[in-house]
Amino acid sequence: MTSPRQLLAALVVLQAPVWAAGVGLALRGDVPDPVPTHWDLAGDVDGTLALPVFTVVVLAVVGAATALALGLVAASGRRSALASLGAAGATWLAWLPAALYAATLVASADAARAADVRLPLVTILLATLLPFVAALVVHRLLPSPVWREQPLPAESATLALADGERVAWVGQASSRALLVLGVVLGLGTVPLWFAVWPAALAAGLAAIAVAWVHVVTVRVDDAGVAVSWGPAQWPRVRVGLADIASAEAGDIEPLRWGGWGYRRTTRGRAAVARRGEGLVLTLRDGQRFAATVDRPEPAAELVNALVVRLSRTAR
């Protein structure tokens, strides 16, 4: 069964080969042959390919990725999280060479020799960003993973809540290793600044980001669970109480959840500052949400008690 949203997603995927082929056909007479295919850091051309070879290679990769993406878009009708994610990945894989190919040809149009061609920064940014946007659109269009109704926790014996009682749990996890890594990265940007300043800028931003996410704050209240980063508790991710089926304290192994920081994998989402104990939520749609936090047992108990209270008062 193919839904209109799947057709739209397929249409987004198909833009890649259509535009790559279209730009290739339209500009084949206006570009130098061989065409530039690689630039060094200073912006000078240091690699070229004959136009037909370049075109065939790009179209082969784009074609294969497009076929894969279309197959996964069709498979996502069976509502598997892996198919939606795979379709988004394949879309990116199809769009990236197509965008780079089109960008190269557009930049080369009307140049006499490959060596004269410059690739403007805007073009590089656009060609890098567009594939991500396309992948995101495809992921959003495809159905979300199967909704498996999760059982609610039994009335908790240890923590009973009155209907109007206000109760909250706030905890944090922090990682000295991440903080040190951020500081080291930050110090590394200083010499880099005098050599290649764009790289220094990127490294500086990465350093700030790494140092910032070394603290994770988890808050449980009657609105649900909110996870936030850094000393200013920003940015913040919320999980509504109505979306939570149950909670437990668990051991969080960063590599099994996709790494440190804020991660999204087929296993679910995770806010990870360190290895070790944390709060693991099972959501009503079967997905999971994990956050590292010190001494999470009372938090899990409170989430379960709040979920029970919500189902009691909603009745």
Binding site: R166, A168, V170, Q172, D221, S228
Partner: peptide, 15 residues
Amino acid sequence: DKLPPARELAAALDV
């Protein structure tokens, strides 16, 4: 041990 950040606790308890 660190106590909860005042802003977080206040928002959570609605005080």
